[in-house]
Each structure stands twice: as C-alpha cells, then as structure tokens.
C-alpha cells in the first residue's frame, strides 16, 4: 500500500515536472504571440471605437475611453454614398473568382503532371515559380507585360484584333454580345487572372499529392469493367479529390480575402478593384483616419469569421 501511494505520487510529480517543462518551452512563443497578435487584435477593437486621426495620434491618450462610440462604423459604412458595400461585393467577387480559378488551374496542372514523362521534374519545378517568387517582382512584370503601349501581351493581342487597352486600369470595357452592350469589369478580371496565375501552384501541389495516393488497382478494376478514360476520371479520380478541394478552397478563400499586396502593387485598387484590405490601408494613409480604418478591419475580420463558420458547418453537414 505504501509502495502504491509512493509510486502514484512519484508519477504525479513526474507529470507535474513534465507540465512545468512544457510551460517553460511554450512561454517564449506564447509571450511573443500575445504581444504581436492577440493584444493588437483586441486593441484594434478599442481603436475602432475611438475618434483617432493620424494627425492627433502622437498627442492623443489611447487610454481615454470617454469618447467611445460607434461613429467610426457608421462613417465606414455610409461614407461616399455607401461605397463600402461596393467594396464588400468586389472583395467577394475577387476572392471567389481567384480561389475557384486557382483551384481549377491547379487541378488541370496536377492531372497533366501526374504520369511520368521526360523532363517531368523540371516542369514541376517551373510550375511552382509563380508561387515562390517575390510578389513585388511578379506584380511589376505583369504590370509591364500588360502595359497599354509597350506591354508584350497588349501588343500580341493587337495582332489578333484586340485593340490596345489598359488592362489594369479600365473599370468597364463595353462588349457587344447578341446586340446587348455589356460592361465587362476588365481591371477586376485582370487582377483575378493574376491571382489565379500566382496561386494555382499551391492547389497543384495538393492535388498532385492526392492524385499520387490513389491506388492503381482502382483504375485497373474500372478499366476491366469497361470504363473509358474519361469515365475513370469522372467516377474515380474526381471523387477522390473532393476532400482536398474543400480544404484548399477554405485556405485559399481565407488568404485571398485578406490579401493586400497583390492588388496594391498591380494598380493600387483603382478601376473597381478596391477590396477591403486596400480600403483599410486607404482609410489609414490616404484619409488619415485611424478609427475608421480599424472599424473596417474589425468588419473584415467579422465577415471572414462568419463565412468560415458557415462553410465549416456546411461541410460538416455534407459529411454526415
């Protein structure tokens, strides 16, 4: 009996020792995360309730809570005749468009690289370039390739009869279709295509990894049963990819929704490409209003949270 309690106490103290060591190991990480992520995250909400402008920032007392109000939110939503809602719409169009296109391109690339061919590794390496290269340089090279006067793509397009247009700064390009005149959001479309180009490698790698894990006998069995290659793709390959496509969609959706760099560098959010991240930046530096800027940031984080929540619930239900 004494031995029993002794060993229990000893194991408890071992456990306690282990926990103590664990705390010691995680403390630096936790502290830095508290300092540069959690604390700012919370403080951002407070800032969004205070009337702070960039000019009075140095003198204002951040701990003065007498002026707390929702006025910044009101201003964010009603400014410029409700322009905010346009920005929200553009953000969704941009995010969903880029995400879907990047996934489709990634799937396409994964399918053609799945089976071996001479030079396959080199091709695979090249396919990752857009994703790993610095965003600043790829944004500038595309900007230059799409330049109205000297862009190589613009000039090649004129050879097939497309007049030279400024792809990144044309808000609406009239298209005549069946006698109807449609205004095509060209700049937004171009930015979405850029995103698809830049982020398809990410989807490509995931799809490729998944494709290579599909057992061969599945295909052999289907071939014996007389399924044609297209049928095999449709009934065997695609269903295997649903799960990974779901994860990819979620990840890319979240990251594209928050994206600032790409549009900022391509055209600064001009011509109907202003997304929420750009608007936050513009409130902060162009209109020098810290309070409204953080209000928009809070709204953006909330929208994202709600969308992700709905998506996860929906996925969970699908799986049931």
């Amino acid at each position: 009996m004494t031995e029993h309690t002794f060993s229990r106490r000893r194991s408890l103290s071992l456990k306690a020792q282990e926990a103590r060591l664990a705390y010691m190991l995680v403390t630096p990480t936790v502290l830095i995360v508290l300092l540069i992520v959690i604390f700012p995250m919370v403080w951002n909400v407070i800032l969004s309730l205070q009337p702070i402008r960039l000019s009075n920032l140095p003198t204002i007392n951040l701990l003065d809570f007498s002026n707390i109000s929702l006025r910044n939110y009101e201003r964010a939503i009603t400014a410029r005749g409700g322009y905010f809602w346009t920005v929200v719409r553009v953000t969704f169009e941009y995010t969903i468009g880029s995400t879907v296109l990047a996934l489709l391109m990634g799937l396409w690339a994964a399918l053609i690289v799945r089976d071996t061919f001479p030079g396959r590794n080199i091709v695979r390496g090249f396919l990752l370039f857009p994703y790993i290269a610095p965003v600043v340089s790829v944004a500038f090279i595309w900007k230059l390739m799409l330049d109205k006067n000297i862009g190589v793509i613009t000039l090649l397009a004129t050879k097939v009869g497309i007049p030279p247009i400024s792809y990144l700064t044309t808000r609406a390009y009239p298209i005549h279709l069946f006698g109807l005149e449609l205004n095509f959001p060209l700049a937004l479309f171009t930015v979405i295509m850029f995103e698809a180009w830049r982020y398809f490698p990410f989807a490509f790698l995931f799809f490729l990894a998944r494709l290579q894990a599909v057992p061969d006998d599945l295909y052999e069995a289907a071939a014996v049963d007389g399924a044609s290659p297209l049928q095999r793709f449709w009934y065997i390959t695609l269903p295997q990819l649903y799960a990974v496509a779901g994860t990819l969609f979620l990840l890319r959706f979240i990251w594209t929704f928050n994206k600032f760099d790409d549009i900022f560098l391509l055209n600064g959010g001009a011509a109907g490409t202003e997304v929420l991240a750009i608007q936050i930046y513009n409130w902060l530096f162009a209109r020098r209003n810290v309070g409204v800027s953080s209000a928009v940031a809070v709204i953006m984080a909330l929208i994202l949270g709600v969308v992700v929540f709905i998506y996860l619930r929906w996925v969970a239900r699908e799986e049931e």
């Binding site: 702070i52 600032f260 902060l284």
Partner: peptide, 23 residues
Amino acid sequence: GILLIYMFPAIVLGIPLFVFFVK
C-alpha cells in the same frame, strides 16, 4: 490558437501595431 493565428489577416494586425509604434 496556432491555426487561428495562421488565418488572421495581417493588415488587421498592422493598424494597432502601427499605433503602438508611434506611441
């Protein structure tokens, strides 16, 4: 927490950090 932070928008952290830096 790790996963959550991974998803959190960089620009949202940017504003308060900017304010702290000035202060």
